[in-house]
Computed example of a mutant assay.
Amino acid sequence: MTIFLSCALRLSELASLNIDQVDNEVINVVGKGNKERRIYLTPAAKKSIYKWIKIRSSLDVPTDALFISRTAIE
């Protein structure tokens, strides 16, 4: 929720993020009309993303998606 709200992302943009789209301070998002934009992370969003990436990396997930569903790890 922190990332969704503080970065002003559309739900479809958030759901389609891949790990490689997250850079140190920026998220590269492909939005409506396949337009690419760079979103600078707030301190709260940055903290949340890197906490999640640490948890996600401990899971055996066969996808590059940043956010995964329960079925992706089964």
Rank of each mutant, 00 (worst) to 15 (best):
7 C>Y: 08
62 P>L: 07
33 G>T: 05
21 Q>Y: 02
43 P>F: 09
11 L>I: 13
28 N>Q: 12
43 P>M: 08
72 A>C: 11
25 E>G: 01
11 L>M: 08
13 E>S: 08
1 M>G: 14
37 R>I: 05
50 Y>I: 03
34 N>I: 00
46 K>Y: 12
3 I>A: 03
13 E>Q: 10
24 N>C: 03
68 I>D: 06
39 I>P: 14
25 E>A: 06
51 K>Q: 07
58 S>L: 12
7 C>D: 11
8 A>P: 04
70 R>E: 07
34 N>P: 01
5 L>H: 15
72 A>I: 00
18 N>Y: 10
2 T>W: 08
1 M>R: 15
4 F>L: 15
12 S>A: 10
13 E>C: 02
23 D>T: 08
8 A>K: 14
66 L>V: 07
6 S>W: 05
36 E>M: 01
2 T>N: 11
16 S>P: 05
74 E>P: 13
4 F>D: 06
55 I>H: 10
49 I>G: 08
32 K>E: 10
24 N>Y: 04
13 E>P: 03
47 K>V: 04
23 D>G: 06
19 I>K: 13
73 I>V: 14
29 V>G: 04
11 L>H: 07
14 L>C: 09
74 E>Q: 15
24 N>S: 13
38 R>C: 09
68 I>W: 08
46 K>C: 03
71 T>A: 13
73 I>T: 11
50 Y>G: 02
9 L>T: 07
5 L>D: 12
60 D>C: 09
49 I>K: 11
14 L>I: 09
49 I>V: 08
29 V>D: 04
64 D>W: 00
70 R>W: 03
9 L>P: 08
